[in-house]
Amino acid sequence: MAEENAVPTVFVVDDDPDVRDALAMLLTAAGRPVETWPSADDFLAGCAPERRGCLILDVRLPGMNGLTAQQALASRGYTLPVIFISGHGDIPMAVRAVSAGALDFLEKPFSDTAVLDCVDRALAEDEHRRGERERILGIERRLARLTPREREVMDRLVEGKVNKIVARELDCSTRTVEIHRARVLHKMGVANVSQLVRYVLGHPDYPGAAAPAEEEESGG
């Protein structure tokens, strides 16, 4: 699985075998790895959510149509950027698809440059999304390594409080705070407090000072 996932892949879901085959041929010729699926159900059953790449999805599919497939994908944790293709590309459907999170909308028959542009944008978007997720997971992993006391100290430092104030608030000596602070900076992999602030606030929903207090109570 890990090896398979090394290369971003373009997943094509269309019920028409010729359209599928032609798209696969075009994308392969242009040097993009391709996998094709005849229906959204087959794709969901056969492709793991963590695969890298993007999805080209026909709006009008037998069984599950494109728009419901889009919802099903999201609810099952697929984060692949979606490009819709349609022989019935009317404006309202395009608006609905894009507002539901689709990256782009192509009307059949399309030009190869349009398809490849879209695909490249979608692959870049996938890279970007994965990078972001990695970064956030990294922050969370580091945060998880802090002891509750260290977390308390860190939250106060991030709020901009100096050691003396932190010591008073936590009812301990300034020396103890300094020790905790050194450990926090080390565990979070940063050199100083201003780097720490930038790093931790890079998490989209970094929990404020109140959250760890509760954690401490429940965690014992």
Binding site: D18, V19, A22, I85, G87, H88, K108, F110, D112
Partner: peptide, 25 residues
């Protein structure tokens, strides 16, 4: 018209895309 459009668009799309692929190959 809608039915025709759908039915014809699929093969047309395949033709165009095959041609594009062939051009690249």
């Amino acid at each position: 018209a809608a039915g025709l459009a759908h039915e014809l668009n699929q093969p047309l799309c395949a033709i165009a895309t095959y041609a594009q692929a062939a051009r690249r190959l």
